[in-house]
Design a protein around this nucleic acid. Structure first.
Lengths: 237, 237
DNA sequence: GTCTATAGCTTGATAGAC
DNA sequence: GTCTATCAAGCTATAGAC
């Protein structure tokens, strides 16, 4: 195969639909690169703090190319959220199903429910590499922004409801509404761990760091389980 | 006093330093109006999602006037955060001091510490009127944005450290680092209550609302106290 | 699929009259 | 203190060549 004349970039074939050596369509690798860049920027500067130009520059693609692949900035954001959501849902459901099997006809222990929902998120944030690190940050921050929490909900609510239902079975004496509230506390706690890596340092004047998340998780798990258990202890007050 | 000719607005005197009927300097009322508008907008759309023009329009002031009073957008944001921070700090310290007095030489009960930090925030968010409502939302969301968490820290860390120190005295068997982590969980839980009024509705398909925050607080208080208490129960695992 | 170029608008900040 | 007017820069989105 003779050497072609001065290709402007390192891309080997730009014809649509043509298979590349690694078996992926041309352009798909570009899409991923753009998503990676958007993930980083949305996580660090938020939706409004990130421009399509920033994404183009970070991904080393031209501005028009970003628009070609994703259209508007809104749909780009949605695609970023969507990309890793199914994996997260699958991990959580896998742990929930395992706990259901192990519990057989009985109820699932509180710790297993908390762990089943929180651990996959913390685990990916910790061990999933830079991509997941940024993604978890993005999800945590977007959850607090009214406009974009909706996008999150589309991908995360179904699994969350499964867990809420199971919490209700484990704590049958507690009214459903309070289970929902406690679940919300749990999510808030979980998100704060990955969303605010700076707060703990700032608060403790740098003495402690939340960088060792898996270790912090060891504290968080009993903390949350005890919290859920407390729901049973107020028959009246 | 003769009627002056066609004043362009309802402002009686615009001379700097001149006292107005209510005893406030001219312009001060304008400053407050601008701060109110910025508070609403920053809370709902975030820093980058809010333009100086939006603030001008919402406050019914001209764009240049906003700049005259606050300079850059950054300093406007800081002034918004600053305005109500001292009150919040005072409320918390008042509860902490009362608890210290009541405890005399003993240690402060866990519930009082949790309540002392969380309640003032929830109370203002609930009963403080629209201004505080937006302010608490703003603080909750800004706490998760790396750039602006710093501004929050300046005004909130001092009091937070006082509470952490007191938690350490109440739970002397727990290492300081874990107290810091648990305190961070508590803050995350507290903020999630005011920051995500939509999540609970979305999750429960509209069946439950977090609008009655004081009632949710009744669930949150024992939840968090039990969480803190759990820190003692793992001499090993 | 990827590029250059640009239309059309919004932005933060400022100059200068009153 | 408040206003009108404007600048330079940045923005999203699109048109059109290759």
């Amino acid at each position: 195969m003779s050497k072609v004349i001065a290709l402007p970039s390192n891309k080997s074939s730009n014809l649509p639909g043509v298979e590349r050596p690694n078996g992926r369509k041309a352009g798909e690798v570009t899409r991923e690169r753009i998503l990676d860049a958007a993930e980083v920027l949305f996580a660090e500067h938020g939706f409004h703090g990130t421009s399509m130009r920033d994404v183009a520059q970070e991904s080393e693609a031209r501005l028009a190319l970003v628009a070609y692949h994703f259209g508007t900035k809104d749909t780009l954001f949605e695609k970023v959220v969507e990309r890793r959501a199914a994996f997260m849902a699958h991990q959580r459901m896998q742990l929930l199903d395992a706990a259901r099997t192990q519990a057989a006809t009985g109820t699932i222990p509180l710790e297993d429910l908390v762990k089943g929902y929180v651990y996959p998120f913390v685990e990916r944030s910790t061990r999933g590499g830079r991509g997941w690190k940024h993604y978890s940050l993005l999800v945590a921050r977007a959850s607090n922004a009214p406009d974009y929490a909706k996008v999150i909900g589309v991908h995360y609510n179904a699994v969350a409801r499964q867990f809420v239902a199971e919490f209700c079975r484990t704590l049958p004496s507690v009214e459903e509404e309070r289970i929902y509230h406690a679940f919300s506390f749990m999510v808030g706690t979980m998100l704060s761990l990955v969303a605010e890596p700076g707060r703990l340092e700032s608060l403790s004047s740098g003495a402690y760091r939340s960088s060792d998340m898996e270790r912090v998780f060891e504290t968080m798990l009993p903390f949350l389980s005890a919290g859920f258990l407390s729901l049973c202890n107020n028959e009246e007050n």
